[in-house]
């Protein structure tokens, strides 16, 4: 799977019986721990970064350091092991942890350069900055709503990227091309592209266009659900995440 982060190591799915992503980060097996960490960072680093930039009004450089430091602190302080699913959603908990972390860092009159055997993760901050330029976010946006919204964007963006990788690797580039033209670029175009127009442009018939789009959308849905499942801390949270991402009007 292609993430914006590049942590290295082969992808390893959690066993279905795993308790959670959260507990995976404290697992004695380093491979499980590594994978849990990758998922955690891939799912949340952009919402964290954007929250720092918008809500905490951190400069670009400060936000980069704070993002790195936040994830390191999560691991070093075993904060995640104190997460109680009965009391809050994981996202809410994480955002609260972020607030506490930033507040403490600022109280300490400057950032501590964290490292602790974890090192800095290569994160594509430029892409996050690019997204911030594209997205209109009011400074006074409710922090929870902002974090949720950026989490939605992060998960959907990852699913699109994964779809592109999978489609190209399996010789289905035309399907992704149509998906990209119709479902990613299309919504912003006026007039919207049509099946017939795309068929003419690409020299294929309309049925091929609709079938390819249908297939790409089905795969996109499956990938998105898979990403949500692996980043959820429990079955209940997975369902809540699917609802929040796909079925909730507030997002």
């Amino acid at each position: 799977m292609t993430f914006d982060t590049s942590m290295g190591g082969a992808r390893k799915r959690f066993p279905e019986t795993r308790l959670s992503l959260v507990f995976g980060t404290g697992d004695p097996d380093p491979e499980v721990r590594q994978r849990a960490l990758e998922i955690l960072i891939a799912s949340y680093w952009k919402p964290v970064y954007k929250c720092l930039r918008i809500q905490w009004r951190a400069s670009n450089e400060d936000a980069k350091d704070l993002t790195q430091g936040f994830f390191v602190s999560l691991l070093e302080s075993q904060t995640l092991s104190r997460f109680d699913p009965a009391r809050a959603r994981f996202r809410t908990y994480l955002r609260t942890c972020l607030d506490r972390y930033v507040s403490n860092e600022r109280k300490a009159a400057g950032r501590l350069k964290r490292g602790g055997g974890f090192g800095h993760v290569p994160l594509d901050f430029e892409s996050a900055e690019g997204e911030l330029r594209h997205v209109e976010v009011a400074v006074d946006t409710d922090p929870d709503a902002l974090f949720h919204r950026e989490w939605v964007r992060s998960m959907i963006s990852r699913a699109v990227e994964e779809l592109r990788t999978v489609s190209e690797a399996s010789g289905r580039g035309i399907e992704y091309e149509l998906f990209h033209r119709y479902d990613i670029e299309g919504p912003e175009q006026d007039p919207r592209p049509t099946y017939a127009g795309l068929a003419t442009e690409l020299g294929i018939d309309v049925t091929r266009v609709t079938n390819a789009l249908h297939a790409a959308r089905g795969r996109f849905r499956a990938i998105l659900l898979e990403l949500l499942r692996e980043a959820s801390v429990s079955e209940a949270e997975f369902r809540a995440d699917v609802t929040a991402l796909l079925e909730d009007d507030r997002s």
């Binding site: 690019g130 997205v135 964007r153 959907i156 963006s157 479902d183 670029e185 912003e188 996109f220």
Partner: peptide, 16 residues
């Protein structure tokens, strides 16, 4: 990949 706009995100949520 450049960031997905709010409009595109909304559309992709419906698509999914």
């Amino acid at each position: 990949m450049s960031g997905l706009s709010d409009v595109t995100i909304r559309h992709l949520r419906e698509v999914a």
